[in-house]
């Protein structure tokens, strides 16, 4: 498990991360979302032991990660701008990582290299941006580490490869102890892969929840009631996060299971009632508005 306790990091007069406490359980895909400059990369760099926190601690399986070779064997960090040695080929990079990571899966790496149609002896400097991204993903996936920390990993990948990578993540999670942590500013990207999402804003964590939990307990419905008084009573009875009205059509985002919400609405004899699918983005907007943050403008 990865755990951070009140972690802070400051770069001269910029507070990049401020008092972040997180828990990332083994076997779940964790999505870390936030705007540009929210502190995602800084947090990831602390999680993999590049940066030393000014305050607080970063624990990987209950041990500090910074300068801890054994714990670092369990973590692979995929930077948003991966570095490869000058004139290196995929083979040379694989050889280098293999000499460092005890559980490196070389056969699988070459297998995947073929699947992704990347030539093992071609100079990486001649690869496109997307190909480099794919290569770094393959190098990281096959390092055999428990945790894979990805910073804006899906940027630059074409939709087919993106989907393939998501599948790879899923299969890794099924086949071995594997916990990907994916930082992104794009909520839609994380929606279909993450089990748990943490929202980072201005260096602090706004919320950290299971995606299913959030989806199960928040719903959006649109309904038409015959009586104004009943409308007011319904809004009072429900834990409303967001309420909009278009003519006689009420659009309500409210906390509660689908059954609970529908029971309440049917008790008011609606003329029309429908439950709408709620995107992760909408959930976040609703949640953060409740938390007092005007997030509409900061989430892409």
């Amino acid at each position: 498990m990865i755990r951070t306790n009140e972690v802070s990091k400051r770069f001269s007069d910029i507070q990049a991360v401020s008092g972040v406490s997180l828990e990332i359980r083994e076997g779940e895909a964790f999505g870390l979302v936030g705007t540009n400059g929210a502190g995602k990369s800084t947090l990831l760099r602390m999680l993999c032991g590049i940066l030393k926190p000014d305050e607080g601690s970063v624990l990987i399986d209950e041990e500090e990660i910074y300068e801890n070779e054994d714990r670092k064997q369990e973590v692979f960090y995929l930077s948003d701008d991966a570095y490869f040695f000058a004139n290196a080929t995929p083979t040379e990079m694989e050889r280098y990582y293999r000499s460092l990571y005890a559980n490196y899966n070389s056969p699988r790496f070459y297998e995947m290299l073929d699947i992704f149609r990347l030539k093992k002896d071609r100079k990486i400097s001649t690869f496109s941006k997307g190909m480099k991204k794919q290569l770094s993903l393959l190098l990281g996936l096959n390092a055999g580490t428990k945790y894979l920390l990805c910073d804006e990993t899906f940027d630059g990948l074409d939709p087919v490869v993106r989907q393939s990578v998501k599948s790879l993540f899923a299969s890794e999670m099924l086949s071995r102890e594997f916990t990907p942590l994916i930082a992104s500013h794009n909520l839609r990207e994380l929606e279909d892969i993450c089990d748990h999402v943490g929202l980072l804003h201005e260096g602090g964590i706004l919320l950290s929840r299971d995606l299913e939990d959030m989806k199960f307990h928040i719903h959006k419905v649109q309904c038409v009631l015959s009586d104004k008084k009943q409308e007011e009573q319904l809004l009072k009875e429900m834990e409303v996060l967001q309420y909009l009205r278009q003519g006689s059509l009420m659009m309500i985002t409210a906390r509660g299971t689908q059954r609970e919400i529908l029971q309440r609405i049917s008790g008011k004899n609606p003329l029309f009632c429908e439950v709408l699918p709620l995107s992760l983005e909408e959930i976040f907007i609703s949640e953060t508005e409740v938390a007092g943050y005007e997030i509409k403008n900061i989430i892409c």
């Binding site: 760099r45 032991g49 590049i50 670092k72 460092l100 990571y101």
Partner: peptide, 14 residues
């Protein structure tokens, strides 16, 4: 920053 991140995230002590 790119290169030092690469080296410092590896499982080798500084």
């Amino acid at each position: 920053a790119k290169m030092s991140d690469f080296y410092h995230c590896l499982p080798i002590r500084r």
